[in-house]
């Protein structure tokens, strides 16, 4: 920081700084460095958030659907919570399931990449990242085709009589599978980064101290990778809870809708639904924030807080 402050100071004050002023100007430089980011956040995060909050308290104009006026109408929040409780529950449940499945799939994969892959490591890395080269929505639409009734998966399962409802799309299974698929890389990469950074000697030491493989994993490897696991679960759970693409494309009209879908339909389909949609967005945000706070407090490491 001192070095940065010095160069910044040198540009503005050719005379050279007096010793006592260096510290103060260091502060200014730090603020200047923060400025672009802060400006960005204020412009594209804070202001829209304030606007959204204002909308969430508006009232519809009686008799003129689609027109609103400024108000302090907390009733929107009541509607959001009472009328759409099921959607909130489903969002958290599906996001939780997707996070769990993503973890179960990602941990062995990240482990293999970090310790066993050898020269295949880069290939595996590309395989994990490659899906990002195509749009998330297009990939989900592709899944819709793959899982379609007359697609290969449903046909095989139907022949084996393993598909109770006779179909995969328009079920919660498809939605959770889609969420798991779409957010898997966000789980793999942080866990891989944690494991890859781990000192192999520490893990070897477990064996040297007569711990069997499982005990070493439980007491050494897993704790070492915990920051990655925490980061991965957050990166998966938070966007998955707010996601609406998977439920829209792979789910049904009623029984698998998540909060994101209700927000979308309140905004775009229900005339006069803006305030409730904004209230739903805010409630979801608060809910996730609270859950993440508790979670990180309970399991988190210093590296995250």
């Amino acid at each position: 920081m001192t070095a940065l402050a010095h160069t910044a100071g040198a540009g503005t004050h050719a005379g050279g700084p007096a010793p006592g002023q260096g510290r103060r100007r260091g502060g200014i430089a730090a603020y200047l460095l923060l400025l672009p980011g802060a400006l960005w956040l204020v412009l594209f995060f804070l202001l829209p958030l304030i606007q959204l909050f204002a909308v969430s308290l508006q009232s519809g104009f009686p008799g003129y659907p689609g027109y609103y006026y400024r108000d302090v109408n907390a009733g929107n929040y009541l509607t959001a919570i009472t009328q759409f409780a099921g959607h909130f529950g489903r969002s958290l449940l599906y996001a939780g399931l997707a996070t769990f499945f993503a973890f179960v799939l990602a941990y062995p994969l990240a482990y293999a990449m970090a310790f066993k892959a050898g020269r295949w490591r880069n290939v595996m890395m590309i395989a994990v990242i490659a899906p990002f080269f195509t749009s998330f929505i297009l990939r989900t639409i592709a899944w819709r085709q793959i899982l379609a009734d007359e697609g290969p998966v449903a046909r095989v399962l139907n022949t084996l009589h393993l598909l109770p409802g006779g179909r995969i799309t328009e079920t919660w299974v498809a939605v959770v599978a889609g969420l798991t698929y779409n957010f898997l890389p966000f789980m793999v990469l942080p866990i891989y980064a944690s494991l890859e950074r781990a000192d192999p000697k520490v893990i070897e030491a477990g064996g040297d101290l007569y711990a069997n493989g499982f005990t070493t994993f439980r007491t050494v490897t897993l704790p070492v990778s915990l920051p990655g696991v925490i980061a991965g679960t957050l990166l998966t759970f938070i966007p998955a809870a707010g996601d609406y693409v998977n439920a829209e494309l792979l789910g049904s009209d009623r029984s698998t809708k998540m909060v994101g879908n209700v927000i979308e339909s309140q905004f775009f389909r229900v005339l006069g639904g803006f305030p409730v949609a904004a209230a739903l967005s805010f409630t979801l945000m608060a809910l996730i924030l609270a859950m993440v706070f508790v979670y990180v407090r309970r399991f988190g490491t210093e590296e995250l807080l």
Partner: peptide, 9 residues
């Protein structure tokens, strides 16, 4: 303003 708009005229 109250939390719910009073019925208009």
């Amino acid at each position: 303003m109250t939390s719910k708009p009073p019925p208009a005229d």
